[in-house]
Nucleic acid binder design. Structure first.
Lengths: 211, 211
DNA sequence: AAGTCATATGACTAATCAGTCACATTATAC
DNA sequence: GTATAATGTGACTGATTAGTCATATGACTT
């Protein structure tokens, strides 16, 4: 968490610093982002940076926190943790929220994508957010298998990797199309791909599929 | 390509340098690998390194070349470019070759996985290996759509991303299981996942699926 | 006006790189 | 044996980092 001094700053200055940080993290990911650059872009002296933040990591985690809260905010009205929803309904909601994020501020979705793609860093961060070693999607899959929604042959580890990967690649497609029309096409692709996954993974009455 | 001086070296020394480089690249990927470390591990002076190679990139591309040739070698007996094979038969062969690689030398498969996961670097490298901007899998998908093997709704870009991602995650699973028995389980998962993809993506007689 | 405190500042340190270069050693030629 | 060329060598350069610190500024207190 940033120091008190940061929160004592005027909103405009705080915004300026955050914008610079988000730009830098979105462009380069955590490891390749440079404090010097954030400092240059937000026109604050380097010394001040370390008055506001413990270190680079401190600022990064703060940005992640903002992203996390924004994503959660976008999902609240649909009450994602509600048990009644099926695995794929939940996925559809998560995907819709992701698209909304990517449209609203592509930089934020880029930062989380870059994080998810960086396995060791992601594991580090997950330790804080998720008590178990499971991420959101993996636990969703587990629940689906437990309540018989998903076919027996589905491997939670593998399926969640697959789903994560496909969300990532779609998210990238949306971002690379700064054109709203193409983004609409990507939304359709998202949903058709979830249909595809549902079609392949759901448990059937005469269950023996996939194997 | 390494300089002539490198190829004039005794085989043991050349091996030692290559082993050190493969270790380093597998552990850290291209960008985070350090020439200093390669030099230290292979107990050659830094100056000599630059007598043998133009620069770090020169050595990396040479290692990639070795990996590429090894992978091709593993696929030759099955003649992958043969037109008769279906998309998913080809995929199965590629996956089998990938598993063989990962078992034989996990470091090599780790290097290529790290490369594939690094989009900008991968694009750079692809320019040299693939004349078009398509990688192997994307052109495979295109062929499958052209000859009516795959359903109309399949998007080549998306499908190849998806397949690449799932091969990556399985490859990682195999590597993380240094146990042969678990590797065998992963092989089964690989194949069942290709079945799953085939099941979902192939064109049906009464075609309207997935959409 | 003097004192006290939080904040501002940018030159500085120390580490880590890739890559170079002047000089040393060894092999080859005559 | 001496000249010439090829190789070996590690200290060095220059760039780029994250993070520090001594000092300056300004605001508020008495």
């Amino acid at each position: 968490m940033p120091k008190e001094t940061f929160f004592n700053l005027s909103e405009t200055k705080r915004k300026r610093i955050l914008e610079a940080a988000i730009d830098e993290f979105a462009e380069n990911g955590y490891e390749n982002s440079r404090v010097n650059e954030i400092v240059r872009r937000s026109t604050i002296p380097k010394g001040s940076f370390y008055q506001y933040f413990e270190n680079k990591c401190d600022l990064f985690r703060y940005v992640l926190d903002i992203i996390y809260k924004k994503k959660m905010e976008m999902m609240t009205d649909i009450e994602i943790s509600h048990k009644e929803l099926s695995v794929f309904e939940t996925l559809r909601i998560m995907v819709e929220a992701g698209i909304k994020m990517a449209e609203e501020d592509p930089r934020l979705s880029k930062i989380s994508d870059k994080l998810v793609a960086n396995k060791p860093l992601m594991d580090e961060v997950l330790k804080e957010y998720a008590p178990s070693s499971d991420d959101l999607i993996k636990s969703l899959i587990r629940r689906g298998k437990d309540n018989g929604e998903l076919a027996d042959w589905v491997d939670p580890e593998l399926a969640s990797n697959l789903i994560t990967a496909f969300i990532l690649s779609l998210s990238e497609m949306i971002r690379s199309s700064n054109n709203g029309i193409i983004a609409e096409a990507a939304r359709e692709k998202y949903l058709s791909l979830i249909n595809f996954l549902e079609y392949g993974m759901k448990r059937r009455e005469d269950d023996d599929s996939g194997k």
